[in-house]
């Protein structure tokens, strides 16, 4: 691990200012992704700003009838919150399907959203990888790509976004609140937070250097049956090959977001509109323009089947 300086700012404003104009500065929350990558020198911050004690660890009701989830709320506490279990079961389920009890106790809402891909070549510093080393090439295209993305990909990168929580947040129309170094704030719909790789796969989200996530807002409860179905190589403690997060209303309408198949949680309005017509029709819309490899083409079938299982569970 490279050496770095460390600070624990006293306020949210101070935290955002501390990172401004310092390219090597990074926020550290739970540290479960950042430290993992720092040990491998894939992440090499020169300065760490610890945002753990800024009072961002609360879940509050909003005047609109939704919830404001502090950026530092731990995954365990979010999944266990009574309001979330009752009104946003999809979110609890997605969180509980991810990582382990120990990791969820440390992992935070913001850190989870910004966690980086699990592409094996991103982790293997001996291999070319455009995300890790821009311009070096993509080893996954002709390599082991079974866990990687089939939609939203580019010739430069086919990495998938690993988060379970983000899939639920996408289906629930969450909005990310941030504060920038100059003190201004903005609200970013989760759909716009992550970027597709294009020819700059190393740029993964729209946040500026030093822009601190302060909260994630959930609109008022969506109702319906809320189901998260994660398909993986082990029954526990494994990343998703395909995950379906759905809210299905009694009349068959609803919304669906998919994990494991794209560089960001994947949702299509056209697919939501097809939900009453069944899994095949909705999956076709979700997978439009898919560019699978030989290794991961199975995901096309798996999306339809997992969605089909979710829709029949919702009816049952």
């Amino acid at each position: 691990m490279r050496a770095f300086s460390y600070e624990r700012p006293a306020s949210i404003e101070a935290a955002a200012q501390a990172a401004a104009g310092m390219d090597g500065a990074k926020f550290i929350a739970g540290g479960t992704n950042l430290l993992d990558l720092m040990k491998l020198e894939i992440e090499r911050p020169t300065h760490l700003i610890d945002v753990n004690r800024l009072g961002l660890d609360r879940i509050e009701a909003t005047p609109e009838g939704g919830l404001r989830i502090g950026a530092l709320v731990r995954n365990t506490d979010l999944a266990a919150d009574e309001r979330v279990r009752r009104d946003y079961a999809l979110l609890s389920r997605a969180l509980l399907a991810g990582a382990s009890g120990q990791l969820r106790n440390r992992a935070t809402t913001a850190g989870n959203l910004l966690q980086r891909t699990r592409c094996p070549y991103f982790y293997d510093t001996n291999q070319p990888c455009n995300k890790r080393l821009p311009g070096s090439g993509c080893s996954a295209l002709a390599g082991f790509s079974r866990p990687l993305a089939v939609v939203g990909v580019s010739d430069a990168c086919i990495a998938s976004h690993p988060s379970d929580m983000a899939v639920a947040m996408r289906a629930l129309d969450a909005v990310v609140e941030t504060v920038r170094a100059d003190g201004t704030t903005r609200s970013i719909p989760i759909a716009d937070l992550h970027r597709l790789p294009g020819d700059t796969p190393h740029i993964e989200h729209v946040l500026e250097q030093g822009e601190l996530i302060t909260a994630v807002i959930l609109p008022k409860p969506a109702g319906g049956k809320q189901i998260y179905r994660k398909v993986r190589d082990r029954a526990s403690y494994a990343f998703a090959l395909v995950a379906v997060g759905a809210v299905v209303q009694p009349d068959g309408t609803g919304r669906v977001a998919i994990g494991g198949i794209a560089p960001k949680p994947w949702r299509k309005e056209a697919a939501d509109a097809e939900l009453p017509n069944g899994a095949k029709a909705a999956a076709a819309k979700l997978l439009e323009g898919a560019r699978p490899t030989d290794d991961n083409a199975f995901k096309l079938t798996l999306v339809e089947r997992a969605l089909s299982a979710v829709l029949s569970e919702a009816r049952g």
Partner: peptide, 13 residues
């Protein structure tokens, strides 16, 4: 009182 992986957190935190 809460379990955590000591390898993925910094002592100074």
């Amino acid at each position: 009182g809460r379990r955590a992986n000591a390898c993925l957190t910094l002592a100074v935190m």
